[in-house]
Deep mutational scan, measured.
Amino acid sequence: MFKRLMMVALLVIAPLSAATAADQTNPYKLMDEAAQKTFDRLKNEQPQIRANPDYLRTIVDQELLPYVQVKYAGALVLGQYYKSATPAQREAYFAAFREYLKQAYGQALAMYHGQTYQIAPEQPLGDKTIVPIRVTIIDPNGRPPVRLDFQWRKNSQTGNWQAYDMIAEGVSMITTKQNEWGTLLRTKGIDGLTAQLKSISQQKITLEEKK
């Protein structure tokens, strides 16, 4: 169930391209415009997507990853294993993690069937560096609404905000991946996880038929 919630949630996290980005210092504006741009692209490019579902990787690479804190999220997933990894191991892992996100997020976007969304009203940021933004996803086919909290983090150097995690039903996506990959990290280390991520990233994206 959580895996499905995570995939549905990713439908609204794909941010804007650099040329049309919203105010990078306001995570609420980023979330709002990102959702609108993403849904528009999914709707307008269905012919290309249906002809070649792996085209979704391109959308992810162009529109999402430049505005997601990939390395920060990847380091959180590694936890204690990050500090013990060599620079070469980290570089290989982050490259594999990025390719994994292209496949995983692309597969999530393949679930698009006309969903709509509501974003919580903007709250004062103050001096906060981590801000959760509640998004409610509404399914046109009558499924119950899904309420999610996207975690946005302020870059201490640039002042810009980027998304790095999502919490559904009190469970963090980062925590879920830590639990899912924990045994592999304990037995085969970061190299074993890197190899698995490379394998997963090679899987073809498949479209979910409308139910």
Results as ranks from 00 to 15, higher is better:
residue 146 V to M: 03
residue 161 W to F: 02
residue 34 A to H: 02
residue 201 S to V: 06
residue 128 K to Q: 07
residue 186 R to P: 00
residue 141 N to R: 07
residue 122 E to C: 11
residue 171 V to G: 00
residue 193 L to Q: 15
residue 84 S to P: 11
residue 28 Y to E: 06
residue 117 Y to N: 04
residue 109 L to V: 04
residue 33 E to Q: 05
residue 116 T to L: 15
residue 66 P to N: 09
residue 81 Y to T: 08
residue 155 N to L: 01
residue 31 M to T: 03
residue 158 T to F: 04
residue 28 Y to V: 06
residue 110 A to L: 15
residue 191 D to H: 06
residue 207 L to D: 15
residue 10 L to M: 08
residue 133 I to W: 08
residue 78 L to F: 03
residue 198 K to R: 10
residue 121 P to T: 08
residue 3 K to T: 02
residue 36 Q to L: 12
residue 39 F to W: 02
residue 151 Q to H: 03
residue 143 R to N: 05
residue 161 W to I: 00
residue 15 P to G: 12
residue 21 A to H: 12
residue 209 E to K: 13
residue 64 L to V: 03
residue 167 I to S: 06
residue 35 A to F: 04
residue 40 D to K: 11
residue 106 G to W: 04
residue 70 V to G: 14
residue 100 Y to M: 12
residue 109 L to D: 03
residue 60 V to A: 12
residue 96 A to V: 13
residue 34 A to K: 05
residue 179 N to F: 00
residue 57 R to Y: 14
residue 120 A to D: 06
residue 76 L to P: 02
residue 161 W to P: 03
residue 131 V to Y: 11
residue 196 Q to F: 04
residue 207 L to C: 15
residue 101 L to R: 03
residue 72 Y to S: 02
residue 6 M to E: 00
residue 150 F to Y: 03
residue 35 A to Y: 05
residue 76 L to R: 02
residue 24 Q to S: 13
residue 210 K to H: 12
residue 7 M to N: 01
residue 181 W to H: 15
residue 102 K to N: 10
residue 180 E to R: 03
residue 206 T to I: 11
residue 154 K to Q: 05
residue 199 S to Q: 11
residue 89 Q to F: 04
residue 64 L to K: 01
residue 147 R to Q: 02
residue 47 P to L: 10
residue 1 M to T: 01
residue 25 T to F: 08
residue 89 Q to V: 06
residue 162 Q to F: 00
residue 115 Q to W: 02
residue 165 D to R: 04
residue 114 G to S: 06
residue 97 F to I: 08
residue 201 S to C: 15
residue 99 E to H: 14
residue 174 I to L: 12
residue 187 T to M: 08
residue 52 N to I: 06
residue 159 G to T: 12
residue 86 T to E: 12
residue 171 V to L: 06
residue 109 L to W: 13
residue 74 G to I: 00
residue 42 L to Y: 06
residue 104 A to S: 12
residue 173 M to Y: 03
residue 55 Y to Q: 13
residue 112 Y to F: 02
residue 189 G to K: 03
residue 158 T to P: 07
residue 131 V to E: 09
residue 125 L to E: 14
residue 180 E to P: 02
residue 185 L to W: 12
residue 42 L to S: 07
residue 170 G to P: 02
residue 67 Y to P: 01
residue 185 L to S: 12
residue 18 A to M: 14
residue 70 V to E: 12
residue 141 N to G: 14
residue 50 R to T: 08
residue 144 P to G: 10
residue 51 A to L: 10
residue 168 A to E: 09
residue 209 E to L: 11
residue 160 N to R: 12
residue 139 D to A: 00
residue 55 Y to H: 12
residue 11 L to R: 01
residue 49 I to L: 15
residue 147 R to F: 01
residue 105 Y to T: 00
residue 11 L to D: 01
residue 164 Y to C: 00
residue 9 A to Q: 03
residue 187 T to E: 07
residue 123 Q to C: 05
residue 78 L to S: 03
residue 10 L to E: 00
residue 84 S to C: 10
residue 73 A to T: 03
residue 48 Q to G: 12
residue 78 L to G: 01
residue 61 D to F: 07
residue 51 A to F: 09
residue 72 Y to V: 01
residue 37 K to A: 08
residue 84 S to V: 11
residue 189 G to T: 12
residue 99 E to S: 09
residue 121 P to V: 12
residue 115 Q to G: 04
residue 209 E to N: 08
residue 108 A to C: 03
residue 157 Q to G: 07
residue 26 N to G: 06
residue 31 M to V: 02
residue 162 Q to W: 03
residue 150 F to M: 06
residue 146 V to K: 08
residue 199 S to Y: 14
residue 14 A to K: 08
residue 110 A to H: 15
residue 14 A to T: 13
residue 62 Q to M: 14
residue 135 V to T: 03
residue 188 K to F: 05
residue 196 Q to C: 08
residue 69 Q to L: 02
residue 183 T to Q: 09
residue 105 Y to I: 01
residue 77 V to N: 08
residue 118 Q to S: 12
residue 145 P to E: 05
residue 202 Q to M: 15
residue 194 T to C: 11
residue 174 I to R: 09
residue 33 E to G: 04
residue 22 A to L: 07
residue 151 Q to P: 11
residue 137 I to K: 08
residue 44 N to W: 10
residue 186 R to L: 04
residue 56 L to T: 10
residue 46 Q to C: 05
residue 30 L to A: 07
residue 128 K to M: 12
residue 22 A to T: 12
residue 166 M to Q: 04
residue 29 K to T: 12
residue 144 P to F: 11
residue 68 V to L: 15
residue 127 D to P: 09
residue 151 Q to S: 05
residue 125 L to G: 15
residue 57 R to K: 11
residue 163 A to T: 15
residue 132 P to G: 08
residue 100 Y to T: 13
residue 109 L to T: 12
residue 119 I to K: 05
residue 84 S to D: 10
residue 93 Y to C: 08
residue 44 N to E: 14
residue 201 S to I: 15
residue 9 A to V: 15
residue 77 V to D: 04
residue 84 S to Q: 10
residue 202 Q to K: 10
residue 5 L to D: 01
residue 125 L to S: 14
residue 78 L to K: 00
residue 197 L to R: 14
residue 151 Q to K: 05
residue 3 K to G: 01
residue 187 T to Y: 13
residue 75 A to M: 01
residue 57 R to T: 15
residue 63 E to G: 04
residue 71 K to W: 02
residue 94 F to M: 15
residue 179 N to T: 12
residue 208 E to M: 15
residue 168 A to P: 00
residue 116 T to F: 11
residue 100 Y to R: 02
residue 126 G to P: 07
residue 178 Q to K: 06
residue 142 G to K: 09
residue 193 L to E: 13
residue 39 F to C: 02
residue 143 R to K: 03
residue 106 G to Q: 05
residue 24 Q to A: 09
residue 187 T to W: 11
residue 117 Y to F: 03
residue 202 Q to L: 12
residue 55 Y to S: 09
residue 148 L to H: 12
residue 137 I to C: 00
residue 53 P to W: 04
residue 113 H to W: 14
residue 186 R to T: 01
residue 175 T to G: 04
residue 160 N to D: 09
residue 100 Y to I: 14
residue 115 Q to T: 02
residue 124 P to V: 13
residue 169 E to M: 06
residue 158 T to W: 11
residue 75 A to C: 05
residue 143 R to G: 05
residue 3 K to A: 01
residue 142 G to I: 12
residue 40 D to N: 11
residue 184 L to F: 05
residue 180 E to Q: 04
residue 107 Q to T: 14
residue 20 T to K: 10
residue 20 T to I: 12
residue 154 K to C: 10
residue 67 Y to W: 03
residue 195 A to W: 11
residue 104 A to Y: 02
residue 176 T to D: 00
residue 158 T to L: 07
residue 6 M to R: 01
residue 134 R to Y: 01
residue 211 K to H: 10
residue 113 H to G: 11
residue 162 Q to R: 11
residue 205 I to T: 09
residue 20 T to R: 12
residue 160 N to P: 09
residue 116 T to G: 15
residue 15 P to T: 15
residue 197 L to A: 00
residue 48 Q to S: 14
residue 93 Y to R: 00
residue 139 D to M: 13
residue 200 I to Y: 13
residue 118 Q to A: 02
residue 149 D to T: 03
residue 186 R to M: 01
residue 176 T to E: 01
residue 183 T to W: 11
residue 131 V to P: 09
residue 181 W to I: 07
residue 115 Q to H: 02
residue 200 I to N: 08
residue 16 L to K: 04
residue 210 K to G: 12
residue 52 N to L: 05
residue 44 N to K: 15
residue 114 G to D: 09
residue 20 T to G: 09
residue 16 L to N: 04
residue 11 L to C: 04
residue 122 E to W: 10
residue 96 A to L: 13
residue 135 V to Q: 02
residue 174 I to F: 00
residue 175 T to D: 02
residue 58 T to I: 12
residue 65 L to D: 03
residue 207 L to Y: 14
residue 178 Q to Y: 04
residue 8 V to A: 12
residue 41 R to F: 02
residue 205 I to V: 07
residue 57 R to G: 14
residue 13 I to D: 00
residue 209 E to M: 13
residue 127 D to H: 05
residue 126 G to W: 12
